[in-house]
Computed example of a mutant assay.
Amino acid sequence: MSLENIRKNNSLDKLLGAVQEENKPQEKKSYTDERLWKPELDKSGNGYAVLRFLPAVHGEELPWAKVYSHAFQGPTGQWYIENSLTTVNQKDPVSEYNTALWNTGAESDKEIARKQKRKLQYYSNVYVVTDPKNPHNEGKVFLFRYGKKIYDKLLAAMQPEFQDEQPVNPFDPFSGANFKLKIRKVAGFWNYDTSDFESSSKLFEDEAKVEAVCQKAYALKEFTAADNFKSYDELKTRLDIVLSGKTVVGNVAEDIQSETPVESKEAPITKSQDDDTMNYFEKLANQ
């Protein structure tokens, strides 16, 4: 290296500049999906909004995506929060473990299986008609995550129970209907029983405006894409750690808390990750 390069690379200003850059406050990374619309409760503990479910985007057959997941805390204190492979019709280690627990016939084992059971969530595109808590969301298209209760209301609209009721396709922007989302807190949980559909109506009289809104909808295939799920072996490894603090390979159990730690691809859970876990679990409980 020449003397000129030595002087150039050893500049005090350059070194101090690098130190200042490293010491800049780090922007906190957000794990929030800004595409998701989420209802909020008012001071009385109730929530209200009017939504319009949108049709499937071009190239997709259904206007919803269905995802199974598990979210529970094991006896080790660690959390298992993963999408279930049963979503894509594959074997899943938690479902297999829960089946084994249930088949013992012991009530204590059945209770564990109940706490670890799959949670079902759906994703659809919605146009926000009214959002009293966040008016800036009105007139925009979002993804909406919802559970079986709301899904059942969609089915009830499409397949009415009584003969004097006309079936409605709630995803049709021309002959569908606005959905009045009503949330009450019952025994500490969000309850959607009083939610219902308005009479059938067009989203807009102007068809060009309808087309413009529908073109803003998001593809849903990502929720069931292969990269949204870990492999069976990865999930099994995580499950073993959550349940016993051990990874099991064949007939060999390796204690991850032994004096000679085994190198693992599983990242240790930090406090921030644990906070994210709790926030996510609370959201699941509100479905």
Rank of each mutant, 00 (worst) to 15 (best):
D276A: 11
W79D: 03
V94D: 00
A65Q: 00
D33T: 08
T237G: 13
Y123D: 02
Y80P: 00
D172C: 09
V94W: 00
L101A: 08
D276G: 12
A219K: 13
N169V: 04
L284D: 09
V242L: 04
Q121E: 10
Q90A: 15
A208D: 14
G17Y: 02
D164A: 10
R7M: 06
Y97N: 07
Q26G: 12
D33Q: 06
Y146D: 03
Y48T: 14
N9C: 03
S124K: 00
W79R: 02
K180V: 15
A71E: 00
K28R: 08
E211M: 11
S195Q: 03
E60Y: 02
E60G: 02
V213M: 03
E40G: 07
K153N: 08
D275L: 10
P268Q: 06
K283A: 13
H70F: 14
K180A: 12
P268E: 07
G147P: 01
R184E: 14
N9T: 08
K236I: 08
K117N: 14
Y122R: 02
V168I: 15
D274H: 15
V19H: 04
S195Y: 06
V141H: 01
G77L: 05
K185Q: 14
V262P: 02
Y31Q: 08
I241Q: 07
L36S: 05
L155F: 09
F189H: 13
E22Y: 04
